[in-house]
Design a binder for these strands. Structure first.
Lengths: 235, 235
DNA sequence: CGCGGCTTTGATGTTCATCAAGTAAAGTGG
DNA sequence: CCACTTTACTTGATGAACATCAAAGCCGCG
């Protein structure tokens, strides 16, 4: 279950939080303390839903640790995965400033910790701290841009190209390693690249046969990165 | 060619600009005058390129009148159309705050007027006017959200569903009429929905045969909107 | 230890891209 | 303004890419 981690108010941990630099770099110590007292850290186990589309937006949320997927449920009960991302991308917050409710659901692919600050407080900070506002605009833009860019990259490729791209994405962006534990099922990869899970699996098998990857369940090793890059480029 | 419309500095037209409410509603008259003197209106003829991907971003741009397409050139010399939009969507500006150069190209589908304000000035306004900042965040979020939403809607449909969706999009969002002049070629629709132009044309022909639309060149009339909506939903 | 969901593979059919060839429309230069 | 060129549109035929269906094995979880 979700665990609420109590913040120790005596020594505000935000002051030295490694993430302060990225999100709250423009706040002075006084404002940081206000945020710190208002914030709430929530821990989610792998598989837990952080919020559902349609839920009211109360908080500005950012991922401190873990890995999450942002997705939308289609009419047919399928999931469309929009992005899979590490800290510090505010995946769920792009619409927090112009809508009342979440448009997309967010769930934890690994055990994750989310830091939550009431959205009203963030609004107040924007109102009185221009540097914070500018910083935030930049971060939100980057988040949206990443989502848009991913969708453009995916849609210009065929099945094999999409899988190659996704494998390189996990390897380069998410895990920074050629060997990694896939955080998603084959079905979820299918939901990310808009292909059928059967064909995703088939392509994995082909890549394995061709010596491009070594796959054992969710453990993936990229064996021939050049070949994979070629497939990703011309696919 | 591009025409620069000189601004009459004696009586700032921004004060009464119908768009002021949407973009600059939080600026007092003094700030509006500063923007007004710094801004530059540019008129683009149908077909003209407003900016190219890779160009340096000097200005914050917003569309006053007309219709534009945002697109990206792929490695194979093809165009991927990201969105087609009317005022007041800041299609080109989502990355103005975190990058130096445009990621995507923008061109005019109809004669268009773009209002340009140096991005530095916008930054200054954000710094000293929190309400303006909050407003801008909301607008930028909405713009990005529209792009993301369009891509999700498109990618969950098959060929016929995509075409039905696009026709309804033009009819409902862009022209607000059942009869309209398509602002794009069949090829451009193909580039928007990631299908081949031959199949886009074929589907138009089928819709015509089935009495769903009346199409004469670029003039389109939606004859059976119910059927089109059914195709869009289950396609 | 049994059940349900994920994975795997093969077979089959549908959807869509590609190729080709012809027509219409829209620029372009003399 | 007309001949010419190019670009857009249209349709049919073919094959490739992908979805779907089905059956069997596997794995994790209660």
């Amino acid at each position: 279950m979700t665990t609420v981690v109590k913040t120790n108010k005596k020594s505000c941990s935000c002051l030295s939080c490694e993430l302060r630099e990225l999100v709250f770099s423009s706040l002075d110590d006084e404002d940081i303390n206000i945020v710190c007292e208002a914030r709430e850290e929530r821990a989610y186990a792998r598989g837990e839903i952080i919020h559902r589309e349609g839920d009211l937006i109360h908080d500005f949320k950012y991922l401190k640790t873990g890995l999450v997927k942002l997705y939308k449920s289609t009419n047919e009960g399928e999931e469309q995965i929009i992005t899979i991302t590490r800290p510090l991308e505010f995946v769920s917050n792009t619409n927090a400033f112009h809508e009342e409710r979440y448009r997309y659901s967010l769930s934890a692919l690994e055990d994750s910790v989310v830091c939550c600050v009431r959205i009203d407080l963030i609004r107040q900070l924007i109102l009185r701290n221009g540097r914070f506002a500018l910083n935030l605009i930049s971060l939100l833009s980057k988040t949206s841009e990443n989502i848009i860019s991913l969708s453009l990259e995916i849609r210009q490729r065929n099945l094999a190209g999409r899988i190659a791209y996704v494998l390189l994405y996990f390897s380069n962006e998410i895990f920074k390693s050629r060997i990694f534990e896939l955080p998603v099922s084959r079905k979820e990869i299918a939901d990310l690249i808009s292909m059928s899970s059967a064909n995703v699996i088939r392509t994995f098998s082909e890549f394995r046969r061709d010596g491009i990857i070594k796959a054992n369940g969710r453990t993936i090793e990229i064996a021939d990165i050049q070949k994979l890059e070629v497939i990703s480029r011309r696919g």
